[in-house]
Simulated scan of single mutants.
Amino acid sequence: MSDKFEGGCLCGAVRFLATGAPKGVFWCHCQSCRRHSGAPVSVFVGIELHAYTVTKGEITKFKSSPGTTRGFCRACGSTLTCEVRQLPTETHFHVGAFDDPTQFEPSKHFFRNEQLPWLHLK
């Protein structure tokens, strides 16, 4: 795995660069993530706050629920980040926001109790 990871939104208005090893890669099954992404499950890559920079544009943020702030592109609406109060030193980037998401493989699940019953994952 590389130690530099680039990514951005669908329209290219937002670009970012992350360096170093990710804190983790995980599935999130919560309803809030489903609604934000429009997908049945989200996969996140945890990056330390000091280990990434926005190199173009700006990630627009909103508080989606108590203790949770989500980020997206203001121009195209691409889902980009999720930050939670319980982990104040990291940002979770949606795996699909990376230029090469094949570099990341989820190793754990969160909110498995909210997993859709028809979704079968390893």
Results as ranks from 00 to 15, higher is better:
S2A: 15
S2Y: 02
E6L: 08
E6T: 15
E6M: 08
G7H: 03
G8T: 02
C9W: 04
C11S: 08
C11A: 05
C11G: 05
G12A: 05
A13E: 10
V14C: 02
V14P: 00
R15Y: 07
R15I: 05
T19H: 01
T19C: 00
K23D: 01
K23Q: 14
G24D: 03
G24C: 10
G24P: 07
G24L: 12
C28I: 02
C28W: 02
C30T: 09
Q31W: 11
Q31G: 12
R35Y: 06
G38M: 06
G38H: 05
P40I: 09
P40D: 06
P40T: 06
V41R: 05
V41Q: 06
S42N: 15
E48Q: 08
L49N: 15
T55R: 08
T55V: 12
T55G: 06
G57C: 08
I59H: 01
K61H: 13
K61P: 03
F62Y: 15
S64D: 12
S65F: 12
S65Q: 11
P66Q: 13
P66T: 12
T68E: 11
T68W: 08
R70Q: 14
C73H: 08
C73G: 03
C73T: 08
R74F: 10
R74V: 11
A75K: 14
C76S: 09
C76T: 08
C76F: 06
L80Q: 04
T81D: 07
R85C: 11
R85L: 15
Q86G: 10
P88W: 13
P88L: 13
P88R: 12
T89G: 15
T89N: 15
H92E: 08
F93H: 04
V95E: 02
G96Q: 08
A97S: 15
A97F: 01
F98N: 02
D99L: 04
D99K: 02
D100E: 14
P101N: 07
Q103F: 07
K108A: 12
F110L: 15
F110C: 10
R112C: 11
E114T: 07
Q115F: 02
Q115G: 02
L116S: 04
P117Y: 02
L119R: 00
L119Q: 05
H120S: 07
L121K: 09
L121E: 14
K122G: 12
